[in-house]
Amino acid sequence: MANPIIVNGIYKNFGATQALQDISFEVKEAELFGLIGPDGAGKSTLFRILTTLLLADKGNATVNGLDVVKQYKAIRKIAGYMPGRFSLYQDLTVEENLHFFATIFNTTITANYDLIKDIYEQIAPFKKRLAGQLSGGMKQKLALCCALVHKPVVLFLDEPTTGVDPVSRKEFWEMLKGLKGKGIPVLVSTPYMDEAVLCDRVALIQKGALLEIDTPQNIIHRFPQRIWAVRAENMFALLLAIRAFPQTASCYAFGEYLHVTLKAGEADLASLQAYLQQQEHTEMKILPITASIEDCFMALSA
């Protein structure tokens, strides 16, 4: 059987803005595939094309072997879709939303309860509460339940954890791992680079173009340069100083450190240390580190 999601040469423009350019990839059976990129990279546009809500200007795509243009009605019956914005009925209760979506697909909550059980049990104490009164994390769990209630063969999740607290984000990804064990292929988008490592494979996207497609581990392994974490008392002055250093290849802020690569690698490290000492930076630390997916993304998009 063909892979459940196949994207081939998709282009999409909005006037003079090129939202997607030559996007091609495949999602395999029971795979958790991540589309990783910042806001405005084209993630939601691609999701709308794959869920038959938007037409591409060029290229083609199939979902479970069905053409997204010619067989859009059939796709809508078998796909689960969770858009980036909470789109359930806020004036209905949790229970009413679930029953409503089950009825649309001519099924019931009990018919596919085994699929949503682990998620539903977390929101069951609030089943009489209006959806609009739920916390961000609970809203996302309800939306996931509604996307799964008809037992879809493919699941599309567009930035499901954006704006959700860290604990709820972690719980949500644990639920996605559980779905993978039930054989449902998942295409998920996120702007959070730390979530990339939770996927089986990822496609890094920036300004409508794919930068790399592989497992997170392989992408990190191919990072071409030695990288250091650098900090000092005055971080902004340190950032300006390192970027002005002639042998600096890249320098970006990452939390409480700067991540720095040098043109000649370790051969330039002593020169950098001497240069920073001359500038009288205090409480300075320079540590060798392993590159992260975010480091790889910054290097690929430079």
Rank of each mutant, 00 (worst) to 15 (best):
D118M: 12
S292A: 12
E29N: 11
A270M: 10
E256S: 14
V186L: 05
A147V: 08
D67N: 14
R231F: 11
D214R: 09
A241D: 08
L276Q: 05
A196W: 00
L155V: 07
E29K: 10
Q18P: 11
S44P: 04
E283Q: 15
G34I: 01
F156A: 02
A264W: 13
R243K: 11
F47N: 01
T17K: 11
L50D: 00
L46I: 02
L269M: 06
F236W: 13
K28Y: 08
R226I: 12
L258I: 12
A241F: 07
L211Y: 06
L238M: 10
N8K: 12
E95C: 09
E171L: 14
I242M: 04
D57P: 07
D214A: 08
L210P: 03
K77I: 10
D165E: 12
N60H: 14
Y11F: 13
G65R: 11
D39Q: 09
L46R: 01
K139F: 02
L155R: 02
H150Q: 04
Q225M: 11
E95Y: 11
I23R: 01
G163Q: 02
D268G: 07
P185Q: 06
F105R: 09
Y11L: 05
L148R: 03
T282D: 09
A16M: 11
L53R: 09
L176W: 01
V188W: 01
I10H: 05
N112V: 05
S189A: 06
V69I: 14
V202M: 01
N8T: 13
T215S: 08
V202W: 00
M235V: 09
Q225H: 15
N234H: 12
L130Y: 13
A249P: 03
F33D: 00
I205D: 00
Y11W: 15
S87Q: 04
A41R: 01
A270F: 14
G15Q: 07
Y192K: 00
I219V: 09
D214I: 07
P224N: 08
T248S: 10
F156P: 02
T248H: 05
K77N: 10
T162R: 01
Y192A: 04
Q225R: 15
T248E: 07
T162G: 04
V167W: 13
I227Q: 03
L35W: 00
E29G: 08
H150N: 04
W228M: 05
F105T: 03
E29R: 11
M138F: 13
L187F: 00
M235P: 07
K151Y: 11
E159S: 02
A232K: 03
K170C: 12
G42Q: 06
